[in-house]
Design a protein around this nucleic acid. Structure first.
Lengths: 342, 342
DNA sequence: CTGTTAGCGCATTCAT
DNA sequence: ATGAATGCGCTAACAG
């Protein structure tokens, strides 16, 4: 049982408020001599402020919750979440915030799973890539400050941070076209995720803008998962006419697709070029090393936390923030085969 | 401002204690009729128990802290931490525990960085692979229930969970010897980590037990990092006499070593076999796919949380738990080159 | 400059 | 079976 303010006060024969002000260094002034004595005995008695009691009064826990999308896959295993989470955690030190890590939950049962966030244990919440159509954002509305890391089209009140998906996809397509590719396939993300949808639409627009036709069979769902990319690759590469390049909406699905290609005897990039998205650590250890679009996830996570804290403190924050992407060219892209003989 | 017990009591003209017992379903009996009325208005008023206030009384927050080792590298990026964390988070749902994710801290300043754990915000703490000689364990002693995920030799009071490192290394060495290797190098972990040291000693013992000599230059620090493995590979492969196999103490360093080998024109496994440890996801996407020792990290993490909760509740827990490992043979190991001509 | 006191929301003991 | 009252540890308003 740690010492309390009362213990110190009794020990020194002063009042609790004096002890409180002395320890907190204000707002009330405490006589130098007493202050020193209080601080000394506080240290001697190994006093620690009971944050629970303090929170009860101040209505601030200096704790935020972070809740990722529900997926079949585990939170810590997904590079996108890893990056965001790392960014949040990094920034949390500087901002004096604790981070409560929530886990997958059923988005349709927001009340059941997120109710505990409203019982005073957190000052705010960061949603990572909530599913399209999920009621969580409407539900949290007006109950708790919230920020979303994801594109967000159908909700204009919750601030969101994301990347310029269109710009990122454009980098990819122009890179591929620059190499001489015209037959480009797309392994896209799940339709339940806004960034997945944005990249998919961006792909279509970019291709059209360059006057390139895309066969419908070359547009396949990869679900942002290695397994999804693998399945997509199996289907894609067993067609009669093959694309010379594939744009995968994230690295995980790209890696799955690469594995499928290997199994089917296709060499990368000689037979088919592959581009990912995320620039995860895997992109570098994979073979061949993956050309990918880098998004500043840690910076996004850090900014999300900063914005959330501002929101909690009643300060205005931008309702939309868009971060720049960057194409990292590695070994998985080259000129198309037909081009080489020329 | 959410409704409180008092609000409901006033609304219904009953006492707060009645409302409290009704909502908590005991321990005192509440007349059926009034109980139903309380529950109804509680729902109508969107009542939520204020956990902060409740914690102040019950002295339980149902929150645990998880603090990983301080490293140069980010917590979420290390497969070992990912696995443990995932295990903890998975189990937390079933146990009704919240998880506070702490970040890197200076182990020599335990008081400064961990003091906040003692201010009532958490009921216990899980340390992930604390450094050897770190004062944190002695420091936490008697202050807060704690459990360690790591080998732990010089502390007998804090319960710890880990794998059978000796058994794991034995699997590796016997696999390599079975393939015909005798010239085996070791890229070991940092001397500050107990599991690193254990694997290193296990390597020496296993080699000796099989009557195999190990050149001192073939024992190199890889620091459990990709960069460390890369540096180790550079040094190792520029020696006049090369080993035919390398056992790396974890996958990250193995992947770094593989990259170094590639850059230096060595093929894996033709020129040199490589074995990792952890069986991280990377081991599968890497090229060649990495032979590795699988440790049940998620199970360890889950057990750690279960044990910690038991500890918090005053129940006895085993002071040491050791989990079995398993060798996953992939493509990075084969017979040594010299053997092939025979 | 300091002491006294109220009260945050709740669980629980003491009265009835 | 229920209401009233206490106090968890703290901050802050009030009273000197």
């Amino acid at each position: 049982m740690p010492a309390t303010l009362k213990d110190i006060a009794r020990e020194l024969g002063v009042s609790v408020s004096t002890v409180s002000y002395a320890i907190n260094g204000g707002p009330r002034v405490v006589k130098r001599e007493i202050r020193d004595k209080v601080l000394a005995t506080a240290k001697a008695m190994d006093y620690r402020t009971n944050t629970v009691a303090k929170s009860l009064i101040t209505r601030r826990t200096h704790t935020i919750g972070i809740v990722p999308t529900a997926t079949q896959v585990n939170v810590t295993r997904i590079p996108y979440f890893q990056g965001c989470l790392q960014g949040v955690v990094n920034e949390s030190e500087a901002l004096g915030q604790d981070v409560l890590l929530y886990t997958r939950y059923d988005q349709s049962l927001a009340d059941k799973f997120l109710g505990s966030l409203l019982d005073g244990r957190a000052d705010g919440v960061i949603f990572l890539a909530p599913q399209i159509g999920s009621p969580v954002l409407e539900w949290i509305q007006g109950r708790l400050p919230a920020v979303v890391v994801s594109s967000l089209s159908h909700n204009t009140v919750t601030p969101s941070l994301t990347i310029d998906n269109f710009g990122g996809v454009q980098l990819v397509i122009e890179h591929l076209i620059g190499l001489g590719h015209t037959k480009i396939a797309n392994v896209h993300g799940p339709s339940t995720m806004e960034d997945g949808e944005e990249r998919r639409h961006a792909f279509e627009k970019c291709m059209a803008a360059h006057g390139l036709h895309v066969r419908p069979e070359w547009i396949i769902d990869g679900s942002f998962l290695p397994s999804g990319g693998y399945e997509a690759g199996k289907r894609l590469f067993s067609q009669k006419e093959l694309p010379t390049a594939v744009f995968c909406a994230n690295d995980d699905s790209a890696l799955g697709l690469v594995r499928a290609a290997n199994e089917m005897g296709l060499r990368i990039p000689e037979d088919v070029s592959v581009v990912g998205f995320d620039d995860s650590l895997n992109a570098e250890v994979a073979f061949p090393q993956l050309t990918s679009v880098k998004q500043p996830l840690e910076e996004i996570g850090a900014t999300a936390l900063r914005d959330l804290v501002s929101l909690i403190e009643g300060q205005p924050v931008p309702s939309r923030a868009s971060f720049k992407t960057e194409l990292v060219i590695r070994k998985s892209t080259s000129r198309p085969k037909e081009d080489i003989p020329q």
